[in-house]
Simulated assay, not measured.
Amino acid sequence: MRFQHLFLCVVIPVLGACSATLPNNASVPIDKRSTLVTVPMTPVSIGCVGHEGVSYIHAFYVKEPFSEYMAGGISCGGTSASGYILPTQWQPGMKVKVRWNRPIKGEDNWIEKTTTIRRYERAGTLTVHFFANDEVRVVSSARYAPESPMHPLPKSVTIAPPEEE
């Protein structure tokens, strides 16, 4: 009987500890001095929008700001739940590499550019905006889809706005 009580007194706290979730933090260098700082991160969905004057985007990828992982999707027009990791709050200097394939006459035509993620208050769906002349902008919005006039960069915009620093 004592063994059963002792067993329960040991097993219950151990199982309780196993069910606890760890905070979603990562130690990442956020400046060129490579100082490690804990930055709260959150997984977000990723999608893309082709603005006026953009031909078909076959595939696209976006490199995470603080890792080498690239996430993406196939064609524009929908959201891909790809588990992209983004800081919960915007950090200065967040640049990302964007790669996309815009086939020409049936042949692959990969384009790659680096751009900043526009300032956001709260992390949300990451949307890659493709504009004419191979211009690209990246925004995160926790509330509004690109079709909404309240989105940080609405689909109705036809010319790529200047990059933010």
Rank of each mutant, 00 (worst) to 15 (best):
G47V: 09
G73R: 07
A81T: 08
D108A: 14
V44H: 07
V54A: 09
E107H: 14
S19M: 11
Y84M: 14
A81N: 13
C48W: 12
P65E: 08
P103R: 08
F131I: 06
V44S: 09
F3G: 10
S156L: 07
H151D: 02
A145I: 14
P23S: 13
F7H: 12
P23E: 11
C76T: 12
P87H: 01
S141F: 05
S82L: 06
R118A: 14
S55Y: 13
F3T: 13
G53N: 13
T158I: 15
G77N: 07
T21F: 06
L153W: 10
A123K: 02
L126W: 04
A81W: 04
K97F: 06
K105S: 12
K95G: 08
P87K: 01
E163A: 04
Y69M: 12
G16V: 09
T127L: 03
P103I: 00
Y69W: 05
P149D: 12
M150P: 00
V136F: 09
P29Q: 06
R122W: 09
P161L: 09
E164H: 08
T114A: 12
Y144Q: 01
M94P: 13
I85K: 02
H151N: 02
P154K: 02
V98S: 03
R119H: 12
A71Q: 04
E64M: 11
S67T: 14
T127C: 03
Q89A: 00
R118P: 00
Y84H: 08
G106A: 03
G106D: 06
Q4F: 09
K113I: 14
V96W: 02
V138W: 10
E147V: 02
M41V: 15
P146K: 01
Y84N: 00
T115V: 15
W100R: 03
C18E: 09
V39P: 07
K32S: 15
M150S: 08
N133P: 00
S34I: 13
G72W: 02
L36P: 13
V98C: 03
Y120E: 06
P152S: 05
L153E: 14
Y69D: 05
V11Y: 06
I104N: 08
G16Q: 07
P149I: 13
L6W: 11
K155F: 11
I12E: 09
R33P: 00
G124I: 09
V138D: 06
K155Y: 11
A26G: 08
K95Q: 12
Y144G: 01
I117F: 05
